[in-house]
């Protein structure tokens, strides 16, 4: 939802970044306010996923220029765990399997790290159990997943649901979904999208990164940005997604080439 004069959650200006000497982001500018859902679309290799990882603080990428202000703070100065505690959440495209670490222990450690950061009392096992039972409903997850190792042996859909469950527990100010829809069947896609919609409110913002328009039938964005070559080429409202789906990404490139 677009709210007049709402808080700016994320402000990215002329962001450039590289990995192993290859420049991936070439001057990205974007502003996201509380309450809004933004979608970034673009072909493979356009830098969408890189952008999401840089926001989360992935150590493999080097920011070479520009700025990222998150709730008034310079995000680029913060360690990945500090960003998470401040309210940045990245739902991974490929969630990592961690054998031997139980999902519950992981979720509780994560939840308490954030609570501690905000001066809240840490939750004991019993209080956490109550919290998690409530949050499980959001992604219709079976409680048996909690005692299993993090993502180990989970199907693609279960991994993505587990990501949304983590988001539900951490209650971020900015939820970034990196190709959360890739490879999901329709049922799983609906559950994941429904979870995101339940978590979206006037206080937070969502940034949905996707290759396919299909997801945007279920998570309806307020703004759509088209990325290509490490930059946002054009932005628009949700109708832009339909046009992209019908005419392909090349159309945007051509339009823009004409414009330039």
């Amino acid at each position: 939802m677009i709210i007049d004069n709402s808080e700016v959650i994320l402000s990215v200006r002329d962001l450039t970044a590289e990995i192993d000497g290859n420049q991936i982001l070439k001057g990205l500018t974007l502003e996201i306010k509380a309450g809004e859902i933004h979608a970034i679309m673009g072909p493979n290799g356009s830098g969408k996923s890189t952008f999401s990882k840089i926001l989360a603080g992935h150590p493999a990428y080097t920011v070479t220029g520009g700025e990222v202000i998150f709730k008034g703070k310079n995000l680029l100065e913060l360690e990945p765990e500090e960003r998470a505690r401040e309210g940045v959440f990245l739902a991974f495209q490929y969630p990592v399997e961690i054998p031997g670490v139980s999902n519950t222990d992981f979720l509780r450690a994560s939840c308490n790290a954030r609570r501690k950061h905000h001066g809240l009392p840490e939750l004991d096992a019993f209080d956490f159990e109550d919290l998690i039972q409530e949050k499980l409903q959001i992604v219709q997850m079976d409680p048996s997943f909690l005692s299993r190792s993090v993502n180990q042996g989970f199907s693609g859909g279960e991994k993505k649901r587990n990501e949304i469950l983590q988001m539900a527990i951490l209650e971020p100010k900015l939820g970034i979904l990196d190709e959360t829809d890739s490879g999901l069947d329709i049922d799983a896609l609906k559950i994941v999208a429904n979870g995101v919609n339940q978590l979206s409110n006037a206080e937070n913002a969502m940034l949905v990164i996707t290759h396919y328009q299909r997801l945007l039938n279920y998570i309806v964005p307020d703004f759509i940005h088209v990325m290509e070559g490490g930059r946002i080429l054009t932005s628009g409202t949700k109708e832009l997604a339909l046009e992209l789906e019908a005419r392909g990404y090349d159309w945007v490139k051509e339009e823009l080439a004409v414009g330039v």
Partner: peptide
Amino acid sequence: PQEMFYLQSRGLD
């Protein structure tokens, strides 16, 4: 490193 980043991105130092 992938596992470390995943855990850090969830707020763990």
